[in-house]
Amino acid sequence: MGVWVLGKVERAIFSDSLELLAAEVGSGYKRIYFGHESCERRIPSLSELKKAKKLCEENCNSFSLITPFCTDAGLKKIGPLLKGLSSYDEVIVNDFGVLKLAAEKTRASLVCGRILNRQYRDPRIANFKNAPNDMVEHLRSSAASSGLFRDLLEKLNVRRIEFDNLLQGIGTDLGGTHFSASLYYPFVFVAGTRFCLTANCSKLSHAGRVGIFSCGKECLDFKFRLENKNFGDSLYMAGNALYFENKKLPSPLPAKVDRLVFTAGISQTKVRQSE
């Protein structure tokens, strides 16, 4: 993926790998997104958070902690991390329970993550031909298109809303509002699961079993390219989530988008970190 120079647009890099972030942070990124958006088992420890924040300080970068949807077990891990953030930091939330916890526990700014901002992300939508105009407009919109949803976020002191770069085009519908917007690229989140097929995937003893089971974080060693002619380019299974790649950024960027978030490492495996 090339490096864009887009005026006042802030470029951020998103990963939960300290090694990957350390290797990439000098490539023009002004902000680090550290953490995981879809799996509570990948929520970083407090010591990892401190290392990531140190990396930011050394490189004069801004810091965002990104958090997944999670159970009470995940909330227990996130609580201490929230206390470790300053008022200059951000926390990206993808779960309303996490949003409530963050509103109570942190001084950091709150951001509505891309998973919390619902969009129609099926890559096949780009193939709809001659659909009714009202429907096309709706399929390009998001939860943030609704004033009721924006009012709710505003009451919770959320000032930034995040979006995926849909193949059918996107309307942020944020013109005339106080919200800023982020756009993720190139990997678009399509679906998440807790019936994770990456968990224990390489153990023959686990063959045929699917459900919510403990795992050996096989997602650090395996990712999958999924091919089916109906879906055009490949989908990627990265841990408990599915993504597709959209290499083309809209030009000009949609209204209020002042940050681009590079989703590093979705289609690659990486070196395991010490836990």
Partner: peptide, 11 residues
């Protein structure tokens, strides 16, 4: 709009 945790119930 899935609820996975007790804080979300309160929300």
């Amino acid at each position: 709009n899935p609820v996975f945790n007790s804080k979300a119930l309160e929300f």
